[in-house]
């Protein structure tokens, strides 16, 4: 039976649609001309400009502080959540799953404004602390689902075996459970870190003066700034992203 060529054509058109804009951006970051439509020869000039841009490096520093703190907390909370969702089937866990799942779908702007209201109601000054609290909140769900996916092919007999051999709960967690879950936890952490580094909408709502993160800096550069420097910055960020994706694939595909 002959198969239609329509699906294959759509698939490759979709992939071209995904990657062409990114490709143009990367090529343009090496373009000596200020405007993307004309080619002015190869140049690293925009990268040089980027490295002299002090605000970007300060913003990057803020971004990394938030991302590390938020990832650490989200990994602990998300792993606990995944463990509970996998271990028990009760009405409590059904409510728990709904609460984990909903933040993934709710528009970011609603999460942003609701957290702004929450911090305003508490009288908390906006800054890196409020940004970190907000990032933990949206990262928990992602970590939980990644670790939960990893738990699906987890054999509980191993835990029972450890306990039969006299291991206490702490030894069981530390020597059996955590090593087996490690690839899922690291993949969840990578995802949380990437999402935190990338988040703009929620961050914008709960950021205060002096807590500019990289996406906020990029946003203001897009709004009133110099496009070629953003091309260079984007290319560097894309390189980091591709490395992270590659690493996370390695981690989740191993031992299969």
């Amino acid at each position: 039976m002959t198969r239609s060529r329509f699906p294959i054509m759509v698939t490759y058109a979709v992939l071209a649609f995904f990657y062409l804009p990114i490709l143009v951006l990367v090529v343009n970051s090496f373009n000596a001309s200020r405007f993307g439509s004309t080619w002015g020869g190869w140049s690293l000039g925009w990268y040089e400009r980027l490295f002299r841009h002090r605000e970007i490096w300060e913003a990057l520093q803020n971004t990394l502080i938030v991302a590390v703190a938020a990832t650490a907390a989200a990994v602990v909370l998300g792993t606990l959540a995944a463990f509970a969702l996998h271990r028990w089937q009760s009405r409590l866990q059904r409510a728990h799953f709904t609460l984990i799942y909903t933040p993934l779908v709710v528009p970011e702007i609603l999460m942003g404004i609701s957290l702004l209201f929450f911090f305003a109601a508490l009288g908390m000054p906006l800054g890196l602390v409020t940004i970190t609290l907000a990032h933990i909140t949206f990262c928990v769900s992602y970590v939980a689902l990644v670790v939960l996916g990893r738990l699906q092919d987890f054999d509980w007999a191993v835990v029972e075996a450890a306990q039969d051999l006299g291991a206490g709960w702490w030894i069981t967690v530390r020597r059996v459970l955590l090593p087996l879950l490690a690839p899922g936890i690291v993949a969840g952490a990578l995802l949380a870190f990437t999402l935190s580094v990338d988040d703009f909408v929620i961050t914008f709502f709960v950021a205060g003066p002096g807590s500019t993160t990289l996406p906020i800096q990029i946003y203001s550069m897009i709004k009133h700034g110099s496009p070629p420097v953003i091309n260079a910055l984007s290319t560097l960020l894309l390189a980091v992203t591709f490395a992270a994706v590659w690493l996370s694939r390695r981690l989740t595909e191993d031992n299969r």
Partner: peptide, 29 residues
Amino acid sequence: LLLLVVVPFWTSFLIRIFAWKVLLHPDGL
């Protein structure tokens, strides 16, 4: 193929919008 679909999800949201802003510009490709 799946990886190629997932990668854009990992790439910066603002940068993907910015890429289109450049392409759609009256002088854009």
